[in-house]
Design a binder for these strands. Structure first.
Lengths: 225, 225
DNA sequence: TTTAAAATAATAGTATTACTATCATAAATA
DNA sequence: TATTTATGATAGTAATACTATTATTTTAAA
């Protein structure tokens, strides 16, 4: 017996719910592995089809194109982080403690978690860190935004901004700080791995902990000190 | 009579220096306009060639591919911001004042400037804000980094981090803060335009000034208060 | 001013990508 | 068992991202 988590996402993100069939779950699973391995640009539906022993046509029955597949994965991740935050802060009253848990979730949504069989949360985190922003840096943002394709990120920002406001009701930039904590977390981890001169976070060691400490320090200074 | 600025960039970024010929400058000029108009994904050398009345083959003599062209433009922008910072802080002693000027340069490297004939700095700023991160979020980062293709960004981070350290010598994250100020500036402007629920910056009005005020506030809190 | 060198244009061609369409077969369900 | 539904196999198209070749124009040197 096990607890099953199914994350529901905006129906416009897919043609057919991939989480409800074996092939669909296989698409999710192997697209995560392959995007992480080859990068988004070099990832194609053709390669994915070969990998999972299916065909391009079959994959196109689930996702309109690889951009929407990425958007699906990124949304899944945002929802996942939201879920982690909700469950882990549920019984916590102190908003400062809550924000610490949020920051911990941002930097390590991968570790310690039960997880979903067909999602490698750790690799999905890498993808979000390395490719996530490509999901909303396109000429279709406005159209896609009106369809609610970024709802999960907005929810996340909303959740975090509320905690920020709880800590300091006079702070004027709760949403900007919320998104910046998330973006900065991803960015600085990415920099530590690939462009170390752009960050103070050291590679190879426990950069996760360092980023966490840094974000906590920033938040302390901005909201409390 | 006029002052001419020529920004020299890493020679690996291009096959033939585009700033030294009419066609090259045309490539720069119209690629900026077209990437801004259509977005990076939909921009192609074919379309650019038609636009400037040249051919794909001719453009390929200047740039290996469109990714390297983007990297060229983004590097140009980084150098340009660096140049603005240098000239505008030259006679300033107070490091806090210097950082204010730096922040001003980040948010509005477009306005008030003399500029270069074949570069629309304002649109280039939009491109950096919307597409800039794509220049280093690829599977080739490490290889390209070893070739020095991100030198200009590192220089910028170095310059800014020094000022940060001048303000507060005990601050432990000068590089992370430097890059974050830059990234946050671009991000929050982009959010204000396209995903307003993710930011506190209001659209349409003078979002530039708002972002500037926010970053100044953050810096004040983090380094001084 | 002629001549050679260099830059650009014109044209063609290839492999890959991002799809769409059709039909056959297998699996699930009524 | 019949029938809908999902998947597989196969084919095909238009666009993209190049490379190669040859012709023509521009520039610079002799």
């Amino acid at each position: 017996m096990s607890i099953e988590i199914k994350i529901s996402l905006n129906e416009g993100l897919f043609i057919k719910e991939p989480q409800d069939s074996k092939l669909g779950r296989n698409i999710i699973k192997h697209s995560i592995l392959m995007i992480d391995e080859f990068g988004f640009e070099r990832f194609t539906f053709k390669k994915l089809a070969v990998e999972i022993g299916s065909t391009e046509a079959s994959i196109y029955r689930y996702f309109e194109n690889k951009h929407l597949l990425l958007l699906f994965l990124v949304n899944w991740y945002w929802e996942w982080v939201n879920y982690l935050i909700k469950t882990n802060t549920m019984n916590i009253d102190d908003p400062k403690k809550k924000l610490q848990i949020i920051i911990h979730s941002f930097v390590s949504a991968s570790k310690d978690n039960p997880g979903v069989a067909y999602v490698n949360e750790s690799k999905l985190h890498s993808i979000v860190s390395a490719e996530g922003m490509k999901a909303y840096h396109t000429k279709e943002v406005d159209k896609e935004n009106s369809k609610g394709f970024f709802k999960s990120y907005k929810n996340l920002a909303e959740t975090v901004s509320k905690v920020i406001t709880e800590i300091n009701p006079t702070f004027r930039y709760p949403f900007s700080l919320a998104t910046n904590l998330f973006e900065m977390s991803n960015n600085q981890i990415y920099f530590a791995h690939h462009l170390p001169k752009l960050t103070d976070i050291s590679k190879d060691e426990n950069e996760i902990d360092e980023v966490e400490a840094m974000l906590n320090y920033f938040v302390e200074k901005l909201l409390v000190a």
